[in-house]
Amino acid sequence: MASMNLHRVYIPTNARNNHYILAEFKPSDAFFDCFDDVESCYQRLARKLFAICDEHELFNVHVIANDKLPIVRYHDEAHSLQTDKQILFFYNPKYHEGHKIHYEADHKARKIRLLFLATGDELRANAASFHSKVKKALDDLKEQYEQQGLSYKVRDHQHLTYDIFAKVKGHRESYGYKLRSLYPRYQARNCTLPEQHSEMSYVSFSIPITRAIKTEYQSQMRPGDYTQFYRSIEDSFLTLCDQLQLTHVGFVADGRQPLVRSSQIDKSDANRELQKLSFDTSAPDGQVRSIWEGEHLCDTMHFVVVASDKDKKDVGYGKFMNNAETMIRRLTGKLPINPEKQDVIVRFFQHISYQD
């Protein structure tokens, strides 16, 4: 899907769009004291929020009060799945709606998270309008709790998801994206954001360690010692990134799911399920985050490529994305992956966050 126009990337028309906004606040003891008990706190908060959302035509909204991190993915069937640390939401923006609260009895949440999922068609075209509606709803809720002085951290997440091998499988239609930054896109559509904000764009993809890969690299794998294998994959990945001036990259192969964050806001951290990777996009020499355990063979290898400040062009991230796609094709070309039968799912993320 290379383009003669380096600042436009051609992505399959069957790519899936997701857009959601996460607003979180830390409830104080004084906040909880306003209610009879913890459960009534969550229930009354949810009722007020959902009534406000009806007024602003926000049709898929969740209150999360169990201190689990929401992860949003596209799916034709709407459902949620919880682990110890995460709550995963699967939905199709065209069809699925709902207002729901997620909490555990007697659990006093450290953070209460309000999740707004975009619905309808043309999510990217309507992104600024959706953000404006959410902002108005949050302002209305803040007025309802004026004495408690709610202060939100707002995170706007958008991503495009597609199979890098879609064309090989016969889907030849594509659409050219410039992938402009969120801040100027929103400003141009009269959606005002604070000047003090953090913005990140990045690409992620994953490669499962299949039987074919194990066979191909069997000489580099010993029971309890997979160091040579991981180093081989890591070297190929980093070499290709260097050739294409992709300077801020991550490789995670320890069984955890990577989460990309700005070092302005979060430090790298981990728990049993998630590996937080913090990047300083202004670092001139680039940054590499490589995390794997030589004594264990994981099921899936995760790769992350973050756009640096140098990749941020007025016209958009099209050139960065073209380079990332080229790297992915070259890397997968070195591995025993059948593009006609296997998918390598690529996600292009755009995040913007601020304190409100």
Rank of each mutant, 00 (worst) to 15 (best):
A283Y: 07
L274S: 10
K276I: 15
F279V: 01
P284H: 00
D309V: 06
A270R: 11
T300H: 01
Q275C: 08
L297C: 02
D299N: 15
S290Q: 07
E293D: 10
Q275V: 06
K313G: 00
K310N: 12
Q275A: 08
V288T: 09
L297A: 02
L277F: 10
E293K: 08
G294R: 10
A307L: 04
D309Y: 03
R289V: 14
H302G: 04
D285Q: 09
S308I: 00
T281A: 07
G286V: 05
P284S: 04
K312A: 13
V306P: 01
S308V: 05
A283L: 03
D309N: 12
I291N: 13
L277S: 11
S268G: 03
K312G: 06
C298T: 15
S308C: 05
D285W: 06
I291Q: 13
S268M: 07
D280I: 03
L277K: 04
R289D: 14
D280A: 05
A307I: 01
H302R: 09
K276C: 11
D311A: 03
D299L: 14
E273F: 00
F303A: 10
H296Y: 14
L277D: 05
A283V: 04
E273C: 00
R289M: 15
L297Y: 05
E273W: 00
S282Q: 13
T281P: 00
S278G: 06
E293V: 10
D299S: 15
A283G: 04
V304P: 07
A307V: 08
R289Q: 15
T300P: 02
N271I: 12
E295K: 15
K310E: 15
D314E: 15
R272L: 11
C298L: 07
A307C: 09
W292A: 02
W292G: 02
A283K: 08
H302L: 05
G294Q: 05
D309C: 05
L274I: 13
T300W: 02
D269I: 03
L274K: 02
A270V: 09
S278K: 06
V288S: 12
E295P: 07
F279A: 00
V288A: 11
Q287D: 12
S308R: 01
D269P: 07
V306I: 04
P284T: 01
K310P: 03
K312C: 13
T300D: 01
L277V: 07
R272A: 15
D269Y: 12
M301E: 12
S268K: 00
K313H: 12
S290L: 04
L274W: 06
D285S: 07
D280W: 00
C298Q: 09
D269R: 12
S268T: 06
T281C: 01
T281I: 03
D309W: 01
L277H: 07
Q275W: 04
E273G: 03
M301P: 12
A270C: 08
M301W: 08
K310R: 14
H296L: 13
D299Q: 14
A270M: 08
L274N: 11
E293Q: 11
D269G: 09
D269F: 11
K267M: 09
R272C: 09
S278D: 02
V304L: 13
D299I: 05
S290F: 02
M301T: 12
S282W: 09
